[in-house]
Design a protein around this nucleic acid. Sequence first.
DNA 1: GCAGCTTTTCAACAGTTGTTGAAAAATCTG
DNA 2: CAGATTTTTCAACAACTGTTGAAAAGCTGC
Lengths: 223, 223
Amino acid sequence: MPAENSAKKPATAKRDRILDVAEQLFAEHGYDGVTLRQIASGARVDVALASYHFGKKLDLFNAVFERRSAYLNEARHEALRRVQESSGEAGPSVEQIIEAFLRPLELAQETGDDGWRHYLALVAYINNSPYWGRRMMSKMFDNLVNEFIDALRVALPGASDTDLYWCYHNMSGALTLTLADTGRIDALSGGLCSSSDFEAAYDHMIPFMAAGFRELCGSDGSR
Amino acid sequence: MPAENSAKKPATAKRDRILDVAEQLFAEHGYDGVTLRQIASGARVDVALASYHFGKKLDLFNAVFERRSAYLNEARHEALRRVQESSGEAGPSVEQIIEAFLRPLELAQETGDDGWRHYLALVAYINNSPYWGRRMMSKMFDNLVNEFIDALRVALPGASDTDLYWCYHNMSGALTLTLADTGRIDALSGGLCSSSDFEAAYDHMIPFMAAGFRELCGSDGSR
DNA sequence: GCAGCTTTTCAACAGTTGTTGAAAAATCTG
DNA sequence: CAGATTTTTCAACAACTGTTGAAAAGCTGC
């Protein structure tokens, strides 16, 4: 029987290996830079098995993208809810909101295996892919992103939506380059900064972005 | 005679058309997402002509990347020199340095044709490509980037090099996403922000980034 | 052990890929 | 115009691509 459209297939060892290898290779070389035979070979499996489990090549790509996205959305949503509860009436600060947006990525990466790291690099690749990447990202993440924008609107009263979205755009770009893990900052800094050190990246990103938001969207009270 | 290694070929109309079409297609679909036949077809030219002029497919890609890079480096270098001269003893401010880094991109885009826009999207694609992209970017731009880092070190006395490079990394990421022109901010903001409006993007990016640099690298005097 | 599944492999397909050698057309030079 | 050079096309190549139908292997309940 050919692969069902959206019915969840039972997990088998070889099926999981196909997803894992595809995740890594797609993240490293992009959709067109990877052949089904490379994936099958990496998973020590026949080529036809990928088609059997996932259908067309594009369906496999989507399956890889969707596998961890739901969990990530939930973790971020939870992190935001937590700081909102703990901050009482006034609502969380800009730093707290940004931290809730970024830290789940770090936790996801700490699970030991490289799966999450490859997934996040894949997200970076998709986010930088013109046109078709936008559609995939929007469908998957826009609901969640708007939750964070809503929280920022409360933390930054008087900010225009235009400014708010441009600020988010800046943060998203910096985050994307970090997730892509290109190693460029390593070469440029002569080893001072390591792109694989996500914690250092976030520690520097959070205050940087918070300052940017406050500058453009008016700090709480002053300006 | 097959294509010479590094000797400059005389420009012919068809040769230029190959470069233009390759520039656009590589920027939109990536290196592996484009075939030489698509490029030849777009340039209304036989497939073999690309090989005749540029050699292998990868050589064509490099030729596209290098075509406008030298000019861009010079324009940015000039912009930095100009603000350094006009600012006297104290040296230019963080805003002035960032502006000198960004505005040449805007000018380049104003020439009317879409060539520069495609080139900048190609740079974004390369910058987000793991490993091989890092090498290409470093070889082409690191010298210039370090000129700007040097200027920032003067404008932000007491800043550690590590912080300085992380700040640059954040700015580079935001810039890259803008250049990629994915249109994602358009969809997210419901049309409030337009990713094709480079001037608006830079107007919001400059104060945002300057505030981030000051926060992380210590403002001039205070903190 | 055997029938009824699902999972996996085998073998092959039609189409496309980058690349090349030789022919043809265009351009330059005298 | 004739000859020499460069530019462009034509035709073909071997290798590789995603996909599929049928056979084989593995598993489950009896």
